[in-house]
């Protein structure tokens, strides 16, 4: 299995631990990532300015993958949704495709149908598959207890994602976490949006949205929250201290990217999973894993 790795804007500068752990995990289980130099912004950040310009950004990236005959693996939920949406609209709407291709012709690019776009977590669940993933597990994480946050664009709009999960009651991320042997705890209002998209517009509302999630997941005794999107992680991890001081609460909740915990279960060296870059440190959880605390039975 080979994929062009689409990092987007945020991950290479603010989510290197996500990128590093994803690359290490892929290498270990035999998924090949190809880096294509031309990949730029997916288009999401300019959608509010012009949906059509965002479409051209997305189409340009897809064209670059299609030149190499590669499908795209994304790590960010926003990239996933914008690229998938463009792919769908452009393949269904010939008029739009011609218009976008007129633009792309100025830079000698052409959008062609046929490139598949999938998030890494979905690839693990769907293409690689739970059974094969299970066979790869070297270290049982049975002493740890996680909750999963999917992020809106991982699931919605549902018309983009071929029904691989149920957006009103998602389970696929829970399943790939559970494969590691860890316990997964459900929580109130699981679909709650992180608020990341409006952080710059109304910080107050945005932080309150993130706070609700942190309140709900910490109502249970969990070791970490698991995410698959850099925007969500920025809200829950990078902004956690801010939320704590603003609302006079204390969480001290590590927020880990899924490949970081999968990496642990694959027996990879912690140093290669980027824990140093998580803002809320995961030391307690890592120690617990080393000393083999009490095992959760679910």
């Amino acid at each position: 299995m080979r994929y062009a790795l689409f990092l987007g804007c945020t991950i290479p500068v603010r989510g290197q631990h996500y990128e590093l752990s994803a690359r290490e995990v892929a290498k270990t289980i035999g998924l090949e990532f190809i880096d294509l130099e031309g990949f730029a912004c997916c288009g999401f950040p300019v959608k509010s300015i012009s949906a059509e310009t965002a479409m051209v950004f997305a189409a340009r990236n897809i064209a670059i993958a299609s030149e190499k005959g590669l499908d795209i693996c994304t790590l960010c939920n926003a990239c996933t949704s914008v690229l998938t949406e463009a792919n769908k609209e452009l393949s269904e709407n010939r008029e739009l495709r011609e218009k976008v291709n007129d633009e792309l012709s100025k830079i000698d690019k052409e959008y062609k149908t046929g490139v598949k776009i999938k998030h890494f977590a979905r690839i693990l669940y769907e293409d690689f598959g739970l059974d094969k993933l299970k066979e790869e597990i070297k270290k049982d994480l049975g002493t740890l207890n996680f909750s999963a946050h999917y992020g809106c664009h991982y699931l919605r709009p549902k018309e983009l994602y071929d029904g691989f999960d149920d957006p009103e009651n998602p389970t696929t991320l829970d399943k790939i976490v559970r494969v590691t042997g860890a316990n997964v705890t459900d929580y109130k209002n699981k679909l709650q949006c992180c608020g990341g998209a409006i952080l710059g517009v109304e910080e107050d509302i945005s932080l309150k949205m993130a706070k609700e999630k942190l309140d709900n997941v910490t109502a249970n005794n969990i070791d970490a929250l698991v995410t698959v999107c850099p925007f969500c992680s920025i809200m829950y991890d990078d902004n956690q201290r801010k939320i704590e001081s603003k609302f006079n609460v204390k969480y001290d909740l590590p927020v880990l990217y899924y490949p970081q915990i999968l990496g642990l279960a694959l027996g990879l060296d912690q140093k290669n999973l980027g824990f140093r870059l998580n803002k809320v440190k995961a030391n307690k959880l890592l120690e617990k894993l080393e000393t083999g605390g009490m095992k959760y039975d679910s």
Partner: peptide, 28 residues
């Protein structure tokens, strides 16, 4: 500018109004 583009309304609207996209259209 306050819509967080979560697409909850988009998926649940009984009339397929696609409100998240309408918010984008209004911003554009």
């Amino acid at each position: 500018w306050l819509c967080s583009t979560c697409y909850t309304c988009y998926d649940r609207c009984p009339q397929d109004v696609r409100l998240s996209d309408i918010m984008t259209a209004l911003k554009n």
